[in-house]
Design a protein around this nucleic acid. Structure first.
Length: 345
DNA sequence: GATCCGTGGAG
DNA sequence: TCTCCAAGGAT
């Protein structure tokens, strides 16, 4: 039996009903693929519903402001996905007359669309024979063929794409791609895979050699940087506060936050009080500075550990960029800020 | 080509 | 508590 046929027939009998599986509209599929990059379906689904409701077509997305798009993306992480999504929507509308790219090659030229996403859209929407290789596919293929090449090495990336391309159905590439990913998600899971229910178990090499638990192989390289964030929560007459947008190429780019004093170590009450940032922010000799959280709030990112303190600054002196507290919720903020806001109010 | 970019859930 | 990692991509 051909692998592809086994995969597809298993898929047709066992697939989940997911909202993006009701369409082949390339814009909608694109939206779902980008939302689901490095994201669990349980987390991404609500965002997909909101995005398709708010921006039903690529024209709607292109017309929006980046701030609106980021606000809708808030909490999902990897915010460059949202910025690139918006950028590419504008590009398609303004430079391609709103005609969605319809081939792997043309899709891959779009910002934010890499090998995986181009293959997914091309195969699902345009029946192009391009194999997807995501985390699920790496797992299924490394086990089925007992491949020990590290999946995050440049050799591995190339090798697995070739294997995937070799076994893909020429008749139903989109269906095949969805099937192999679904198998990885439901049966060939990272831990405790359900080999007893797997349609490929009869010819799975890792299962035969009892190597399932050691595959796929992955090189680990975890360098975690620790940063100390001191947020200055200015409270002007209990009415308004000050927000600023993160501009640098850093985490949370283009999201909003309270003015920040960053350092590589703990900062004292005194050093915050006399910091240049604060003095530039408000000239008020009688301001009160109060620490909101005695212990650092720990926020873990993939390569960073943020230790955060929120300093409440009560003052009566107004500020030109003051934002009404009632209006703060309209700004896209990182989760660490929205968590604070919930506790603070 | 190694490193960076978020968040949350599972085990 | 800690580790892994989830429909990846850009630099």
């Amino acid at each position: 039996m051909i692998i592809s046929n086994l995969l597809i027939s298993w898929y047709l009998a066992n697939k989940r009903e997911l909202p993006w599986r009701q369409t082949k509209d390339p814009y909608t599929i694109w939206l779902s693929e980008v939302i689901l990059q490095q994201t669990r379906i349980a987390q991404g689904t609500a965002y997909f519903i909101r995005f398709t409701k708010e921006f039903p077509t690529v024209f709607d997305l292109a017309t929006a402001n980046e701030d609106e798009v980021l606000k809708l993306w808030q909490g999902l992480g990897y915010y460059s996905r949202a910025r690139n999504l918006h950028y590419t929507a504008k590009y398609i509308v303004n430079e391609l007359n709103g005609v969605f790219p319809n081939s792997y090659k043309s899709l891959k030229k779009m910002k934010g669309i890499g090998d995986y996403t181009a293959s997914a859209i091309a195969s699902i929407c345009f029946n192009e024979v391009q194999a997807v290789v995501d985390g699920n596919v790496y797992r299924v293929l490394s086990r089925y063929f007992n491949v020990k090449t590290a999946i995050n090495s440049s050799r591995g990336i190339k090798e697995f794409k070739e294997i995937a391309q070799n076994i893909i159905s020429k008749e139903n590439p989109g269906l095949h791609n969805e099937a192999i990913m679904e198998l990885g998600a439901l049966i060939c899971t990272p831990k405790n895979p359900n080999c007893g229910a797997c349609p490929l178990s009869g010819s799975c090499l890792a299962l035969k050699k009892n190597k399932i638990d050691s595959l796929p192989l992955k090189l680990k390289k975890t360098k975690i940087r620790t940063r100390y964030f001191n947020f200055l929560v200015v409270n002007i007459n209990n009415q308004s506060t000050i927000l600023e947008q993160r501009k640098e190429n850093d985490i949370w780019k283009h999201l909003y936050q309270f003015p920040l004093v960053e350092s590589n170590e703990e900062l004292s009450h005194e050093s915050i009080l006399t910091s240049d940032n604060l003095e530039k922010l408000i000239q008020d000799k009688s301001l009160q500075l109060k620490l909101f959280n005695q212990n650092n709030i720990v926020h873990i990112l993939t390569h960073q550990k943020i230790l955060a303190k929120f300093w409440i600054i009560n003052t009566k002196s107004d500020h030109k960029n003051a934002v009404e507290w009632n209006n703060v919720s309209n700004f896209a903020v990182p989760v660490i800020i929205s968590n604070f806001l919930e506790k603070f109010r």
